[in-house]
């Protein structure tokens, strides 16, 4: 019966648990220890490359090659972070093997936050509406239209990027937030598919009851479907946010101007400089870590919400 106690949503059952305790504890405890070891190993595997990035970002770029075998930073310095934040002078940056390119970190951070937030709100809402139509409404041609949406997953981005770029240019939207946001604002096939699968699993009982009470589709959608799907919605929102945050090629094409440049595009300069030249490794890793920080903060805040929303929907 320890099983129930460990179940995340199993709290409710806990009080009645001791009554049914079975004599299997030993085997289970051994199994659980093994499970913990497996989980710990995977967590370590996940973390090690991050340590490596941190190590490189704290190294002097020019000492990296010689210190390749060491687990510690080569010539410990915060120079890379200073370069990324634009705090280092040109000479200082070049002396440490940097490119001399500095970036306006805070402005680009704001641009990233703004575009990712708008994309997330739009994409999750509109995709949820579409998913509702696909999962909960009955209309002729539903499956065919859904499959058409699904096939959009299979169109390589390099083939949508060009026509979309031309479209944005003709609309006069190049170097605006709108251009960065629009292609992802209304839907992605992934979001629609994801939510449809979850909406399919929802019980019809409450919905039917609401209908009898005279509620319309809009009311049912906002008052019943959305609250009942808090967990998948927040999970999706998080993933959409991360994906928008990491988007590189599209904002590079349509948003190179300082005013709208997002963090990933700004950080791109730390990569390949010349055809065969070495990149500024330390700068690249420092930039990557700095760009990931806001996301980690977001997860720290959001992750708690996910758990809360699950418990909320379970106890209501």
């Amino acid at each position: 019966m320890t099983l129930v106690q460990e179940n995340p949503t199993g709290r409710l059952a806990a009080p009645s648990a001791p009554a049914q305790r079975k004599p299997r504890r030993r085997g289970i405890r051994w199994q659980r220890a093994l499970a913990w070891v497996a989980l710990a190993a995977l967590v370590l595997l996940t973390l090690f490359p991050f340590y490596w990035m941190l190590r490189i970002s704290l190294s002097d770029n020019r000492a990296l090659a010689a210190g390749a075998g060491s687990l510690l930073p080569a010539d410990l310095t915060f120079g890379a972070f200073r370069r990324v934040l634009g705090l280092a002078t040109l000479e200082e940056a070049r002396a440490q093997g940097g490119s001399g390119a500095s970036i306006d970190f805070w402005r680009y951070l704001w641009n990233s936050v703004l575009t990712s937030s708008v994309i997330t709100v739009g994409q999750v809402l509109f995709s949820a509406m579409a998913a509702y139509a696909f999962a909960r409404l009955r209309w002729p041609g539903r499956e065919a239209v859904f499959f058409a949406f699904l096939t959009a997953l299979m169109i390589p981005p390099i083939f949508t990027a060009l026509p979309n770029f031309v479209l944005m240019q003709r609309l006069g939207l190049l170097n605006t937030y709108a251009a960065i946001i629009l292609p992802f604002f209304f839907m992605t096939p992934f979001a629609v598919f994801f939510l449809r699968q979850f909406f399919l699993g929802l019980s019809r009982e409450i919905e039917e009851a609401a209908k009898i009470d005279g509620a319309g589709h809009v009311r049912i959608f906002f008052r019943i479907i959305l609250p009942m799907s808090a967990a998948p919605l927040s999970t999706l929102a998080l993933l959409v946010y991360i994906t928008s945050w990491n988007e590189y090629f599209w904002p590079l094409l349509v948003g190179q101007e300082e005013d709208v440049r997002v963090l990933t595009v700004a950080l791109g300069i730390f990569r390949s400089q010349t055809p065969q030249g070495s990149p500024d490794w330390a700068g690249l890793m420092a930039a990557t870590l700095l760009a990931a920080l806001p996301m980690i903060a977001l997860f720290a805040a959001f992750g708690r919400r996910i758990v809360d929303s699950i418990q909320f929907s379970g106890l209501k």
């Binding site: 058409a148 169109i155 949508t160 026509p163 604002f185 839907m187 096939p189």
Partner: peptide
């Protein structure tokens, strides 16, 4: 969004 940014390029 589907028609503009996916179906049309496709």
């Amino acid at each position: 969004g589907f028609v503009t940014f996916y179906a049309w390029p496709a």
